[in-house]
Write a protein that binds this DNA or RNA. Structure first.
Lengths: 190, 190
DNA sequence: GATATAGTTGACAGGTATGACAGGTTTCCT
DNA sequence: AGGAAACCTGTCATACCTGTCAACTATATC
């Protein structure tokens, strides 16, 4: 199911550094689209409309509201993935960022809010579970898709799915598979 | 959610002892970044941009804007550090966040922008160098202090200093040393 | 050193959006 | 179910916007 992303007047107000009363006035004036709840007349603003409003008025759009992106974060140091994989992903219209270790991956994740994370477990090893655990326990990453590229020696690849991965790559070097699965995941969550 | 810290033209004007009209002129000339509200065209200036503007023009930065944060990020799973160390740091007025792995540490770092990072190399091992490398190569973290808590078995503790640490803890479990060094680092960068 | 000139700033006024407050109600969370 | 948090409405004082003009500052010129 697709859940509607909405804001209250208070939230919208905090996002743009104004009093909630002002947000209500924008709505009354018809500058900002919103609907009312039957009870007290609470306003609800669809994130989409709010972002549109911000753009129209050249106001800053907060990172955490920005439109569902085609950003992909690659967590790997494998040259195979960073070059060929990158190209394959760019061909399907993705913006790629690459992180070479877990720490910088975390920083990129928080800053860029990608729609897809590709984790190379050759690099992170068992630490990959911590990454998955963390992301899956946070609601703000509920829309994130995770694609795991397991190490060749990994005997029990399926455990990554149990840990929260959305998909696994079966062949490390088949970039067609990478881009196909990435595409699926991105479209499923769009 | 991200709450936007903003100033009005009047506030900005008072902060630097000028007329609000002048602040508006700075904005019109593009010297100071700001955005407009749809209604009357009120300007809102992000504190971050304002402080940058002051610095660029070597104007004095008011204390309550430079807000030397007392946020500390603890990267460890050592119970000794997370309980006793935490307390010791809280006693000197720090806000503590704890991350149990590099990935979540990266996320916290990007979100909370702490003033001090305490890295337990018992946890991150050689990966600590990647953390230091990353942080020291980014200008946005130039104000961050880094305190390394080396593993007991670490034979060459000094190499952490070479890698960019600001200080080392000599005894893992002496919380007095931890809070003393933390205090020094926080004050040096205030 | 005095004067001219260009550019920046402050002051003022009229108009209006915004913020603060209070009283009341619903919604949300436990 | 019960309490706390958050929202709504209406009103009023405040603070912001724009435009204009005078005063000031800095620089150049004589």
């Amino acid at each position: 199911m697709s859940e509607l992303q909405v804001l209250t007047t208070g939230e919208a107000a905090r996002y743009c550094g104004v009093n909630f009363r002002t947000v209500i006035r924008w709505i009354e004036r018809g500058q900002l689209k919103a609907y009312k709840l039957p009870g007290r007349g609470d306003h609800r603003i669809c994130v989409e409309d709010f972002v549109g409003f911000l753009r129209d008025n050249s106001m800053p759009v907060p990172n955490d509201l920005a439109a569902p992106s085609r950003k992909v974060l690659l967590l790997t140091t494998d040259p195979e993935l960073t070059s060929g994989g990158r190209q394959a992903l760019q061909q399907i219209g993705c913006d790629i960022e690459v992180a070479g270790d877990s720490f910088s991956a975390g920083i990129h994740m928080a800053n860029a809010k990608p729609a897809l994370l590709v984790v190379d477990t050759d690099l992170v090893g068992e630490g990959g579970f911590q990454v998955l655990d963390y992301l899956r326990s946070r609601s703000e990453y509920s829309n994130l898709s995770i694609l795991v590229v397991p190490s060749d020696e990994d005997a029990e690849k399926a455990r990554w799915l149990d840990a929260g991965a959305d998909a696994l790559l079966t062949h490390r070097s088949e970039h067609g598979e990478l881009s196909a699965k990435a595409k699926l995941l991105l479209e499923a969550n769009a």
